[in-house]
Design a binder for these strands. Structure first.
Lengths: 334, 334
DNA sequence: CCCGGTCTTGTAAGCGCTTACATCACGCAT
DNA sequence: ATGCGTGATGTAAGCGCTTACAAGACCGGG
């Protein structure tokens, strides 16, 4: 194994000092053309690549951003994270990922690890977490931004959308169409402010319309779980005409079970989703849902975080969502 | 901002040398109980956390694994990567991700960056790439493993499945059911050995059965693109009875277009996918496809890579796939 | 022809950590 | 008593890089 060449090797070969080589790489303009050419030739010849650890040690900058994601399996995060990563890559930063599996303790631990590794900034998902995490971030002065949720004036800036208002608008649309008995299949709400906000939004819409309270069943992020939740809901609210779901995956599962039970959608039962995954258009009938600007959000979060790393003040950013009215929601029959 | 405490701060507070503190942290057993207690107390009090860059600089180990993924948006990678990452995290390694967007040059660049950052090992997707990448890996002696494809005896070990054989088995099943005119919607094959292998597998199955050659249309990884590809295929092969697709997303797109054209599936046209994403069960009719053990593969790849980092010899691992016979494939009408 | 300014390059001091080696204290065999 | 092995701790040399500061080269103006 050929030992990796060091700055010194390059310097020797080019007949200059290590300082000059370093300058060629970092501030080319201060080095005179001829010298630079000689150095660059040596760099090429040796296949030199700077050692990041050494550089980070003195520069106190790792060019690394950390992200703690519940899980990458979830398509909801995958797209946004990809966009986030694209921006980072373009700015010569790298992404260090950790996943929490929706466990607050694991998340806190991951943040600690990321800080110890010298992450220049950290991306967090959602607002729900141990305040100690924010304290840690503050005392270590590691900038962070929260995405997938929005709250102005929180401990760290957020880039996201209003989960509650979006769901409220969707349910209000259902109410406008004449639905009176509405139920919801929600994702797990414990430690998940996004899921909770969606439930709250739906509740608020019903309350504002003076309709009976929302009946909620929680389900794991899986179509099978959603299908079973639909059974329980049908049991508890036999006259339900609209089932709103916390996300598209749950909606797809619920719709599938509805079909299996011989219930036509939207004829006998309307079903809605949230997120507007590709999935939403592929199921029959196409899902009425809420479109979330995942890509925009990921990019904006990256920009915000990079700005913060750069020492610039960062504002929270509220992104708009959009109702996607498709076929799974229609006026109730009766 | 409170400057992060260093080893020296801890040493001073505990009244010992930095060497002793370092030993307490790395080889606690060589330090006498009483001293260790004093040191640990100081560590706690100061909230000390070792500086990774400094440690990496001297230890020449970063406890970091790099992965170059075409894109995380693709559900196919998301699940496997998550499993990969879970194993890493359990072994106290972190994952540094880069994406190539299916561009070989970008991939090579990413590998270079990852090496410069001192990644202890690198995960690569698929076999297709500039041989220079393997050379680089070899000269820098950075272990790597390839996943999502399989080739024994390649430059680096692989953990994956046989794309060609799997597709061949699927098409053979179609042939068995009586299909004679078969066409394929493939993902882009340029620089993508997985896509190419799937085409080859389908071709081989037809040839073995003495049937007319496979007609292929390529499409980007999107349902709309697949739908358009179906149009072209129908144009080229009006009497086609089975359209096999390179993956489930393409299949879903093709099926959707078939419905829009008034073609019943599988009545007038059979359609198959590949990967068995959750999607496959949600579309109508449920997709006949090939199940790929993404999770197992991700985990196995992580174990193999970690073993290689540890200096152990690593064998390639071929994982089995499984035909998922569902409703979108049936015997042709005529 | 000398002086000071400008521009380029070299010198060397760390950054925080690990680790080979030196040192020291102790206790036991001789 | 002397010497030596043993185990605990300290000393100090880097790891590869950046960067303040010093040094030298060269220029034009007085």
């Amino acid at each position: 194994m050929a030992k990796t060449p060091t700055l010194e090797d390059v310097a020797t070969r080019a007949g200059v000092s290590t300082a000059t080589v370093s300058r060629c790489l970092n501030q080319p303009d201060v080095v005179v053309e001829e010298t630079r050419a000689r150095v660059m030739e040596a760099v090429e010849a040796l296949g030199y690549a700077p050692n990041f650890s050494a550089r980070a040690l003195v520069a106190k900058r790792t060019q690394t951003i950390g992200a703690v994601i519940p899980t990458m399996e979830n398509a909801i995060f995958a797209e946004g994270i990809q966009a986030f990563q694209d921006v980072l890559q373009a700015e010569r930063y790298m992404l260090l990922v950790a996943s929490s599996g929706y466990d607050p303790a694991a998340e806190a631990e991951a943040v600690r690890t990321l800080i110890a590794r010298g992450a220049d900034g950290i991306l967090l998902i959602g607002l729900d977490r141990d305040p100690a995490v924010y304290d840690l971030l503050a005392t270590q002065s590691v900038p962070a931004v929260v995405a997938w949720a929005f709250a102005s004036g929180g401990p760290v800036p957020s880039v996201g959308f209003d989960n509650a208002a979006s769901m409220r608008a969707l349910v209000a649309q259902g109410v406008r169409l004449g639905h009176k008995r509405v139920a919801m299949i929600s994702g797990r709400t414990e430690g998940n402010d996004r899921a909770r906000a969606r439930v709250e939004g739906a509740t608020a819409a019903l309350r504002a319309a003076g309709l009976p309270d929302l009946v909620v069943e929680e389900a794991d992020y899986a179509t099978g779980a959603a299908a079973d939740a639909l059974d329980r809901l049908l049991d508890r609210v036999p006259d339900v005409t609209l089932v709103v779901c916390g996300n598209d995956v749950l909606a797809a599962g619920a719709m599938q079970r509805a079909h299996a039970l011989g219930l036509s959608v939207p004829g006998q039962l309307s079903v809605t989703g949230f997120d507007d995954l590709g999935l939403a258009r592929l199921v029959q009938p196409a899902l009425t849902t809420v479109r979330v600007p995942h890509k925009t959000m990921g990019e904006a979060a990256a920009r915000a975080l990079l700005a913060a790393v750069d020492g610039q003040a960062t504002e929270s950013l509220l992104l708009p969502t959009e109702l996607c009215l498709r076929d799974s929601l229609a006026a109730p029959k009766s």
